[in-house]
């Protein structure tokens, strides 16, 4: 356990293989196969009410849900100034899942509602809108989850007082393959923010 002068993971959420883990504890278990059904089931299970959810693409839905579940007992807007909380996300497939769906509509009449999600960082925007966050944000694409990079990038932002708090991690969707692993990082008592602790949460489902 870190003290309040060190950077810690104070909350986390993992969504993978049909299960939702909040702070390492499984809080929901559903069918792993169909992502559309899973997203709807998780949304209903936690009793969220956010009409715009239905308009999001699956990448944004997954990231939005993971953030909502992770922040259930947090009010970042009360605790930090809007510019104090950032969002740093990463994935392997960028917005390819929605790019393909949009491409299918181009043969007829292109869908504006799909077009607006043909960038991976739109999920960042959806999270920022929901929680009124205006801090630094970034979205990186890499073949695999790069815990050392996320650790270094976020630590640098907090240690240099660019951010006081950061939502960071991995949100990836391609068809029915998906994984979200989000971490709330701040200078508060909690689990030490290290490469090992990040990977331990990310790999939770794999034992």
């Amino acid at each position: 356990m870190n003290d309040e002068t060190d950077i810690s993971i104070t909350a986390s959420c993992l969504i993978v293989n049909g299960s939702v883990y909040k702070d390492g504890i499984r809080t929901f278990s559903g069918e792993p196969g169909n992502l559309n059904n899973l997203l709807q089931s998780v949304y209903s299970h936690f009793g969220f009410r956010y009409p715009k959810f239905y308009k999001m693409d699956n990448l944004s839905k997954l990231g939005w849900l993971a953030t909502e579940i992770m922040l259930q007992h947090f009010n970042l807007a009360e605790k930090y100034p809007a510019s104090g909380t950032g969002v740093v996300l990463s994935n392997a497939n960028a917005s390819l899942d929605t790019d393909r769906k949009y491409y299918d509509t181009v043969k007829d009449i292109p869908s504006p509602a799909l077009f607006v999600y043909t960038l991976p960082n739109i999920v960042t925007g959806e999270i920022c809108i929901r929680h009124c966050l205006k801090g630094e944000n970034a979205f990186f694409v890499s073949e695999k989850f790069d815990a050392p990079f996320i650790h270094q990038y976020v630590s640098n932002m907090i240690n240099n007082d660019i951010l006081q708090c950061c939502i960071c991690g991995w949100v990836d969707v391609l068809g029915d393959d998906y994984k979200a692993a989000l971490f709330l990082v701040e200078k508060e008592p909690g689990t030490a923010f290290t490469v090992e602790s990040i990977n331990k949460i990310y790999e939770l489902e794999n034992g």
Binding site: I109, P112, V116
Partner: peptide, 12 residues
Amino acid sequence: IDALELIVLMQQ
């Protein structure tokens, strides 16, 4: 964005 979708609806 909904406004654009309404335009698409009218066309389709």
